[in-house]
Design a protein around this nucleic acid. Structure first.
Lengths: 223, 223
DNA sequence: CATGGCAACTGGCCGGACCAGTGCACCGCG
DNA sequence: CGCGGTGCACTGGTCCGGCCAGTTGCCATG
């Protein structure tokens, strides 16, 4: 038999773990409140410093938010991908992620999403994508910013249609960076409007392929 | 003109930010040490609680590790995807991620990686993949555990050959879950050895496609 | 009935204290 | 002189008590 190396478990980790579990198990739902720090320190039978360190960790994980002075205590946040995005941003810095890598990754994700969307979309999904395209068309005259936002909505719709939460998360993670990128690309083009129109045209072809359930073609077009 | 809503910046956040920047900028490299908490509290002119809360955040982000009693102070860690994996695990729990979603995602990633690998591999990459396959072959008689480990190495090699850090990260993120899965699948099969042999055969075909630079075929096989 | 002020909280931050553990230098032994 | 054991200085983990600025909601005041 083998023994496991024993490593000390910090008190604040126990606190973090308990609260995390309560959230994941659904005992604590987004919008609900945690007790105040002074109350928690009684419930967990630890000092306030320990409670605070635990709350710091949970906060940096994007699970809760605490505001000074709020008598209702720390707020349980709805899940968001900001923690993922932060980790990814960190990865980007450390690994010297280039824009090329990012764009390439985005295209792959997009291609995969289109493929899945072409296979398993529902009328609602198509409708959402149509709406996004219409919005992009309308935004043609409203300037680059509005257009970029509509562009994001389209990609979001595709990711949703794909039906895989992980893909949607990947999409969300690169969203912000891509937004910036699209904006830059458009404003650098000699003819902004033409560039936007070209983008729109490509998107429409992707949508067509998805609607007609041609996975391979949809994936190809997205790249 | 519009005013921005002013929100208080916590002292510990400033500390986190400064240390993060120092790491990202390369002023602090992995393996190096931070000053002790008592020293840092002098340098940042804050209390120890504040320093500690900052360190907690950095630790939960996987950037540093501190051990009690170590006179050298907190250790700067090499980058790892554990933070990313934790966020993703969190996502999985909240979004009720199913095994199907996970496997599907993994196949997509794998497909994309194979495609890129087929396009841009180098002799070293092929060599690594060959080695992994050989190890798998050898593991055929060593049991499921060894085989699964070798299997992981193969996927890791493909992700590396793809050359996109984000893909590699995605691979790392789902790795653990997949390991468990592969193991289960094999042990459930009527004939373990046959199942393993079949897996091996498929992997070899993927490698062949990659070597012969057939992106589409490699992607298809991976799925 | 609206409104302004007040009090009872909140979280943010500080300082000091104690403890168990670690690493290193020192010292005595062989 | 080399080496192993020992002690000490220091570490992080945790606790306590306190102060401050801010928020909320109630209540008295107009």
């Amino acid at each position: 038999m083998g023994f496991d190396p024993v490593q000390p478990v910090r008190a604040y980790e126990r606190v973090v773990e308990q609260i995390e579990r309560a959230i994941y198990r659904g005992d604590l739902k987004p919008g609900e409140r945690l007790s105040s720090e002074r109350q928690l320190m009684v419930e967990f039978a630890v000092s306030r410093s320990t409670v605070r360190e635990a709350l710091r960790v949970l906060q940096s994980a994007g699970l809760i938010r605490s505001r000074p002075g709020d008598p209702n205590g720390p707020l349980i946040l709805p899940f968001s991908t900001i923690a993922l995005e932060k980790s990814l941003a960190s990865l980007a810095r450390v690994e010297q992620l280039s824009l090329v890598d990012l764009l390439q990754f985005r295209m792959l994700i997009e291609g995969a999403a289109s493929m899945l969307a072409a296979r398993g979309h529902t009328p609602e999904h198509i409708e959402a994508m149509e709406a996004a395209l219409t919005a992009m068309e309308a935004a043609l005259d409203e300037g680059e910013a509005a257009f970029s936002v509509a562009d994001l909505a389209f990609h979001e719709a595709i990711a949703s249609a794909a039906g895989n939460p992980l893909l949607r998360a990947c999409n969300a993670v690169v969203r912000d960076v891509v937004l910036e990128l699209v904006l830059k690309k458009i404003s650098e083009a000699p003819d902004h409007r033409a560039q936007m129109a070209e983008t729109l045209r490509l998107h429409r072809k992707v949508l067509d392929a998805v609607r007609e359930r041609q996975p391979a073609r949809a994936a190809e077009l997205s790249r």
